[in-house]
């Protein structure tokens, strides 16, 4: 991994993005097991319908895990100080998610040179599913 340095990154620069495979029922079943999140709304269509949804939908934390990969493909995890997201819209079966990050600011935090990133996850239609940010020490 070529670790970026503080002086080499500029505000507005994009970090490498990531496109994940379309969400399937198998994706959700595997993530339910692996993540301990057994909420049936993500794996049981009968329960989802009873709860007022047309079908099951993705766990927000699955999409956040994808977004985190953009960060950890870019810098070692030990450089990441904060990572946060707002879940803006439900991610549906078949959605092909693109995870992106851009340098929003450079500043010193607790004596460390840090960059703030604006992060987003969009589906194939450009609908924003997650909007987030991260604080990374470089």
């Amino acid at each position: 991994m070529n670790i970026p340095t503080y002086k080499d990154v500029s505000i507005g620069a994009k970090i490498p993005s990531l496109i994940k495979k379309p969400i399937t029922r198998t994706t959700l079943a595997l993530f339910a097991g692996a993540s301990n999140d057994h909420n049936p709304i993500h794996i049981d269509i009968d329960f989802a319908k009873k709860s007022g949804y047309e079908d099951v939908f993705a766990h927000g934390m699955l999409v956040m895990a994808y977004l985190g990969q953009v960060l950890t493909n870019w810098v070692p995890q030990t450089s990441i100080r904060e990572f946060s997201t707002r879940f803006k819209a439900i991610t549906n079966l078949g959605d092909e998610l693109k995870c992106e990050g851009v340098i929003a600011d450079k500043m010193e935090v607790n004596g460390e040179q840090c960059v703030k990133l604006d992060l987003s996850v969009k589906n194939q239609n450009g609908d924003v599913k997650l909007a987030g940010s991260a604080l990374v020490a470089l």
Binding site: N39, P40, I41, G52, R81, E82, F83, S84, T85, F87
Partner: peptide, 14 residues
Amino acid sequence: PIGRILHGEQKFKY
């Protein structure tokens, strides 16, 4: 009830 919840926001500090 679990069927009525959605995840609104999530933040981690490391």
